[in-house]
């Protein structure tokens, strides 16, 4: 029988990728709009239907959602590892990159909710963090060998 924690791990990881993708998408649109508004050089055919405020809200919600799924998915992954290998951590490259990404996103959530940063800088961080998630998702499989490799 398949390990239930492994299934939860995969399911939640996918959901978290979805959340982070949406957060990334809204961040890119926000950065484009913000730049044009600051430069006072508006697009001729008008902006996309969203406002900076609505993009910021959407970004915060999807990023938070992604972060919660990511956190629970990571815990499920750790338990699944323990059941299969007898240890919580086995030093798999994807494992390590995931922890690093988690720390990055935790940092973004912290600056966003402590109101240290808002707007452009948070969006830049969200875009960078998504790059890291993409690498964790795809790049690690290509460049490293480990339990997540596609054999």
């Amino acid at each position: 029988m398949a390990n239930i924690f492994l299934i939860i791990h995969i399911l939640l990881s996918c959901l978290s990728y979805l959340g982070f993708s949406l957060a990334f998408f809204s961040a890119v649109v926000f950065l484009w709009m913000e730049r044009r508004l600051k430069a006072k050089h508006l697009p001729k055919l008008g902006f996309l239907p969203w406002s900076l405020e609505s993009l910021d809200n959407f970004n915060t919600k999807t990023l938070m959602g992604g972060f919660v799924f990511f956190t629970v998915g990571l815990i499920a992954g750790i338990i699944a590892t323990k059941q299969r290998f007898g240890r919580f951590f086995i030093g798999d490259p994807k494992e390590l990159w995931s922890f690093a990404s988690w720390l990055f996103y935790a940092g973004i959530v912290w600056v966003r909710f402590s109101y240290t940063l808002r707007g452009r800088k948070v969006m830049l961080l969200a875009s960078l963090a998504f790059g890291m998630v993409l690498f964790t998702f795809i790049g690690v499989n290509v460049f490293f060998q480990g339990i997540h490799s596609i054999r």
Binding site: M33, L37, F47, S51, L52, E53, S54
Partner: peptide, 8 residues
Amino acid sequence: SLAKKILG
């Protein structure tokens, strides 16, 4: 329209 684009 600018105010709406920035503030919703």
